[in-house]
């Protein structure tokens, strides 16, 4: 397991390097000038030139790449072109909302999706099954954007239960954080809950036909014990993989939700940075997202090994 971890982490480093290089190349070949946007409509050519010099954009792309990589090795992610802040500190400030949102959404998706899938599978072919799957399908099919606005209309405007937008940091305002998270977490979690429900149902149904369940029944176990004691954990192993994928997707996919609910997370930061051609920020955010996704995948593999005695890493 130790060797496995070391190898996986080394693999992650290589992945990070490749991603960083790709991102650097892509951001630098896409047309667009950060200086023009920073300086606004009244800019003059010499202002643009001066700012480009200040930002280091007067140097060639390979030189900038080497410089950036060198800084990166020492842990320096650079400085935002747009607002002159350190990339690392900006991202650090934006990380909490995204992580909180992602984890809450994932929890929600699991808490809704898995019971829904189990109910549907256990009552396969009944109205309960169809109803659960319609709910799941709706969750998976509704666009985040649309669902978010609908929730805001209902819960903020008509019923005034939750705030429409914004975020309260868990460090400053722990009592309020959850109120800001409920609607976005539902919005982001809904589609994944739908997918998880369908996977949980399919996996459980597959396991329900397994020979060892026949064995369990032949022991005289109650159907409830057969499902809960034998079928569920087995069906959860592939389902868990879906949850891992969902978590990874959420980290990168919270952009729309963050924009709708004005949550200051990394997803929104990425969009803003792309629009502003804030190259160091784009690179920083993508590296971070890639790292998080890689870590989630690693965590999924480790949990696989914990859940399934057949899986051993060497």
């Amino acid at each position: 397991m130790g060797a496995f971890l070391v190898r996986r982490l080394a693999g992650m480093l290589v992945t990070m390097f490749i991603i960083s290089t790709l991102v650097f190349i892509i951001t630098n070949v896409v047309p667009g000038s950060p200086a023009a946007l920073i300086l606004g409509e009244d800019r003059t050519p010499d202002q643009v030139e001066a700012l480009n010099r200040e930002l280091g954009l007067d140097r060639s792309v390979p030189v900038r790449y080497v410089q950036w990589l060198g800084d990166l090795v020492t842990g320096d992610f650079g400085t935002s072109y747009y607002n002159d802040n350190s990339v690392a500190s900006v991202i650090a400030g934006r990380l909490e909302p995204t992580l909180m949102l992602t984890f809450t959404s994932a929890l929600l998706a699991v808490a809704i999706g898995i019971p829904l899938g189990i109910i549907a599978a256990v009552y396969q072919g009944t109205r309960l099954d169809y109803a659960s799957m319609v709910v799941a399908l709706m969750g998976a099919a509704l666009p985040n954007f649309w669902l978010g606005l609908l929730l805001i209309l209902l819960f903020s405007l008509y019923w005034s239960v939750f705030p429409a937008a914004g975020y309260a940091s868990i460090f400053d305002d722990p009592g309020d954080t959850w109120r800001y998270l409920v609607l976005p977490a539902i919005t982001l979690g809904a589609s994944h809950a739908g997918v998880i429900a369908r996977m949980a149902r399919a996996n459980l149904l597959e396991v329900m036909g397994a020979d060892y369940l026949r064995t369990a029944r032949s022991k005289g176990l109650r159907e409830r014990s057969v499902v809960l004691g034998h079928a569920l954990r087995n069906s959860m192993i592939p389902t868990f993989g879906v949850v891992g994928v969902a978590l990874a997707l959420m980290i990168g996919g919270s952009i729309v939700t963050e924009a709708v609910f004005a949550i200051p997370g990394v997803g929104r930061l990425l969009i803003e940075s792309v629009l502003r051609r804030d190259f160091p920020m784009i690179q920083g955010v993508i590296l971070l997202i890639a790292l998080l996704v890689a870590l989630v995948n690693l965590a999924v593999d480790i949990v696989y090994a914990l859940l399934d005695p057949r899986v051993r890493y060497a």
Binding site: Y212, T215, A216, R217, S218, G220, L221, H230, R233, N234
Partner: peptide, 29 residues
């Protein structure tokens, strides 16, 4: 029937590879 299954009637199935729960120990099963 639950008293019969596993009590008065024991059953061995064809597929030993798949008839045991892969996640439980022998002792538990």
């Amino acid at each position: 029937l639950r008293g019969v299954r596993g009590g008065k009637v024991g059953i061995i199935f064809q597929e030993p590879m798949t008839s045991l729960n892969p996640l439980h120990t022998i002792e538990r099963q």
